[in-house]
């Protein structure tokens, strides 16, 4: 693993355009991390929904399992939007 350590003296060497580029990079990384965290949470939930009764017979997904996962993600997303809307409504009342 890369063990380069960056100290404050190194940071002071960054010019403005590299700083701006880093800000954009960090912003994108934050987005990616947020998305990945959500994907981990949803895989956890949808694994339980789609594979709860099945015995594992192969290391790949069959058509039915793939469809179940895709539906699970979409319906969970619907639910998120619905709860969000409901919470917003009850707050304004």
């Amino acid at each position: 693993m890369d063990t380069t350590t960056i100290d404050t003296a190194d940071l002071a060497r960054l010019n403005e355009s590299d700083k701006a580029e880093l800000r954009t990079f960090i912003e994108m990384e934050n987005q990616r991390t947020k998305h990945q965290r959500m994907a981990h949470g949803m895989t956890d939930i949808c694994w339980k929904k789609c594979f709860s009764s099945a015995t594992i017979r192969s290391g790949s997904l069959d058509g039915g399992e793939a469809t179940c996962l895709a539906n699970c993600v979409d319906r969970f997303y619907d639910l998120r939007l619905l709860t969000l809307k409901h919470l917003q409504n009850s707050r304004t009342q």
Partner: peptide
């Protein structure tokens, strides 16, 4: 051998969920 298959399957499921989620977010 169940564990080996299960790991491959879980990873495939993760990739599927990731792709579906990305698609849905782009739609939204």
């Amino acid at each position: 051998s169940c564990v080996t298959m299960c790991m491959d399957k879980y990873l495939a499921a993760w990739n599927k969920v990731n792709a579906s989620l990305l698609q849905r977010m782009q739609q939204e």
